[in-house]
């Protein structure tokens, strides 16, 4: 089994500690360096401001030749994020390149939050509100920001959120 993935992950980790990018943190599980927990803070001066969003990153032994699987573990309401937390982002799919390290992946996701790509909708309701009813979209985003404060590790997006409108949030058909 190749150890180059682990070598690179250790380098990624050292770099994150030495030169932490603004608004994101990440660390590997104690037991398994291939599994990382990350947190992205909502960018300031956007409806996402103040939100704390957890993500799970799963690396394979092929990293960095293959992209990690990354998903939000906190519920988000976003045009490019599926209800199960999976993210529709080109660099995690067909545009993956080993030039992206963990910092770069997380900062890309962070900028995706405030700058959605309407061309690849993953959540049709979020996508529609974003382009047609921006005020309502912003309100829904601020809701998930508030929910993110109660979010505890161990929950998944689908069993999180016991707000009144959680049904509407789940409904993407």
């Amino acid at each position: 089994m190749s150890s180059s993935a682990r070598r690179r992950l250790v380098r990624d980790f050292k770099r994150l500690q030495a030169d932490p990018p603004a608004g994101v943190t990440a660390a590997p599980d104690d037991a398994n360096i291939l599994v990382w927990q990350a947190v992205i803070f909502g960018p300031d001066d956007t409806p996402w401001e103040g939100g704390t969003f957890r993500l799970e990153m799963n690396f394979s032994e092929d990293y960095p030749n293959k992209a990690p699987a990354v998903r939000f573990a906190t519920r988000v309401f976003h045009p490019n994020v599926y209800n199960d937390g999976q993210i529709c982002l080109d660099i995690l799919q067909n545009q993956w390149s080993p030039i992206y390290d963990i910092s770069a992946i997380l900062t890309s996701i962070q900028s995706l939050l405030s700058d959605p790509n309407p061309a690849s909708p993953a959540n049709s309701e979020a996508s529609r509100l974003y382009s047609e009813h921006r005020r309502e979209y912003d309100r829904r985003v601020r809701e998930v920001v508030e929910q993110s404060w109660q979010d505890e590790p161990g929950e998944t997006p689908d069993d999180g959120g016991d707000e009144d409108d959680s049904d509407a949030m789940n409904d993407d058909d």
Binding site: S4, R7, R8, R11, D12, R15, P64, P98, I99
Partner: peptide
């Protein structure tokens, strides 16, 4: 402009 962290392992290999 490539990052050293990215270049290193590939270059070494």
């Amino acid at each position: 402009g490539f990052e050293e962290i990215v270049v290193d392992s590939f270059w070494e290999t």
